[in-house]
Nucleic acid binder design. Structure first.
Lengths: 225, 225
DNA sequence: CTCGATGTTATACGGTTGTATAAACTTTTG
DNA sequence: CAAAAGTTTATACAACCGTATAACATCGAG
């Protein structure tokens, strides 16, 4: 029985070592990576992983929980940020590279972990934009939740799409690659977010007319055109 | 030897039938779907597919080519459109559902087929926005190529991200799902594209000042800080 | 009618996967 | 020191994968 302090510590570190190895392999090679690859990366045999986690699914769940914990804790440091800002700041720290890539893969896969992460980011963006509206920095929206969902899915999806264009990126390349991508999208993002793309308000007005009252806005006066 | 006309026709239709079956299975179940599943969906055995295409890789390549052909031909009907518009118009036609889902999966996977499709869309968007700028509809950009790349990757990536949140969508649900997603993002897209999000030009101006002259401007003076 | 080419299936082989089991090794404990 | 508990490996098994091979079925050509 493990009673001594060193025993407990070594057991925990072994579990943690295997889990971290799994996170890295999952992040780099995707969630179809074999248990044997994960074990080899940790310098052990596949049976040890089964012995510690029972099944690959359980291992995956522990990885999800750990990555979620790392993600939220490394985000709580500063103030409220947009998900893109959070990711950008994490991309600056190479230590967070595996966790970050794991998060992106989770979201792209669309499983339960990815969905909860995404909903988390959307909620955060709603709060972030509300603060911005209150302080006069952000323009109010006719449907703040839809806008937050749109901003998160497009920015995150765009990042994912550009990442998937890089063939087999290893752990060392994640940070620089993310920073390069974020560098390249900074100008278009700022242009779009401050000036828009369309010169005329026609299309928006026509859509608002077609769709009727915008959600949330109790528009009693029929002020057309 | 196949000399008669009927022989050639039947052979071609068999190949086409297998190929179309493969496209559907790849579209719905992803590119990890087994050859046996594809064969079962076509009502044949796995050996027949190997006999006709040699290997799974070859089958995949023929599917890529066929889908690319369908995509470009079903797009050439109208005038120049943004990729999102093209996808939206295709989503209205349930017949295009497998091809459309296959295209989206290809792009998400990031293989050669997906990369060429994406580059194709970016080029098209550059031309599309150039026409818009010329006719006064679209606001000029400081870096038109970067903006086109940004618009394509974000809109397409956002679509992909929202699609991956729908668990195991079958062929009949693709059309309605895509239409629902596009409906939900229409208002935020129009808001963002006509009004932007930020109230002040500060952030853009500060970035332009920080980065120096926008690309295309040959900045010879070493203007530090 | 026979022959041969072609469409199709049945079967099998080597590889990889997740996982179960038991043995060997290491460390702690009584 | 020896017994026990925990750690790690070696091995095996069943399932599935892509693919190769040979046999069977079908049908037109000479």
């Amino acid at each position: 029985m493990r009673t001594t302090r060193t025993d407990v510590a070594s057991e925990l570190t072994t579990r943690a070592r295997l889990r971290n190895s799994a996170v890295e392999i999952f992040a780099v090679h995707g969630f179809d990576a074999s248990v044997r690859d994960i074990a080899a990366h940790a310098g052990v045999t596949a049976g040890l992983i089964t012995h510690h986690f029972g099944s690959k699914q359980k291992l995956r769940e522990e990885c999800d929980a750990e990555v979620l914990r790392q993600y939220t804790s490394s985000k709580r440091e500063g103030m409220a940020m947009s998900p893109t800002q959070s990711i950008a700041s994490m991309a600056a720290n190479d230590e967070f590279a595996p966790m970050l890539l794991y998060v992106l893969r989770s979201v792209r896969e669309g499983g339960p972990a990815g969905v909860s992460l995404l909903e988390n980011m959307i909620d955060e963006t709603v709060r972030f934009t509300e603060e911005g509206v209150a302080s006069g920095i952000v323009r109010p929206s006719r449907d703040p939740l839809a806008r937050a969902r749109y901003m998160v899915t497009t920015s995150l999806g765009g990042l994912l799409l550009q990442l998937s264009l890089v063939p087999e990126l290893n752990l060392a390349e994640i940070g620089p690659t993310l920073r390069r991508i974020i560098d390249e999208i900074t100008l278009p993002t700022l242009e779009l977010y401050t000036e828009g793309v369309l010169m005329e308000k026609r299309y928006l007005d026509e859509y608002l007319l077609y769709i009727g009252d915008p959600p949330g806005g109790t528009d009693t006066t029929t002020s057309t055109s």
